[in-house]
Amino acid sequence: MPKWFTPAAILCGLMFAVSPLLIANAPYESTMGLVQKIFYFHLPSAMTFLISGVICGIASLRFLFGGDPRHDRTAWAAAELTVLFGLLTLITGPLWARKAWGVWWQWDVRLTSSLMGWMVSVAYLLVRKYGGPGSDKLAAGLALFGMANVPFVYISVNYWRTIHPATSVVPTLPASMGLPLWWCLAAFLLFFTLMLRLRARLEEQRARLDDLYLSLDE
């Protein structure tokens, strides 16, 4: 593992340990009250979900046109993290919506497209698991189409009149709310980077194991 891993892991843990304090000290949003605080974890998970999808797509692209298995391993790791962060987004979102909108789920463009993007990443993992030989390229193709969905999710709130708050909300936040938000986002992205490295490491070790078995057969 790279040298930066352990210090970064400790830093990440500390950031998460501090985050509840920052969130608790942030002021109440005037209309939504307490439940608005879900946002400090919902937005970072959603951002990480989209970034992870893009990283998976770019890594797949480089794998497809370069053929380096390293990129393939990154893509796999990113896909698994896309599923994780997508799941967290799709759980924390409805928990907020239950209070703010009165319903758990709304068939609105942003929600639907996020769900769709998440399903693509689940399909990616299914292909990797059950696709058999040649599934690496198949999955890479899938990741590209999944990546094409990401900008759609991002702009959807600004183009359609949806019930979901628009992206323009974020820069208008007062500093007292912005600090915990950016702090959490940084913590999430750090966690994502660490897990991406660790998960890719797992694939590297698996590849090494395969090589060892091959050399044993010879």
């Binding site: 399909a123 299914l126 292909v127 059950y130 058999g132 599934s135 198949l138 193709g141």
Partner: peptide, 27 residues
Amino acid sequence: TLFAAMLVRARTRDVLLPVLLYPITVP
């Protein structure tokens, strides 16, 4: 067409085609 062509070599093609196709073509 793209995914069906790619799945020709996969053993589980019958299951995987709808699994891959529907989430992407939902829009």
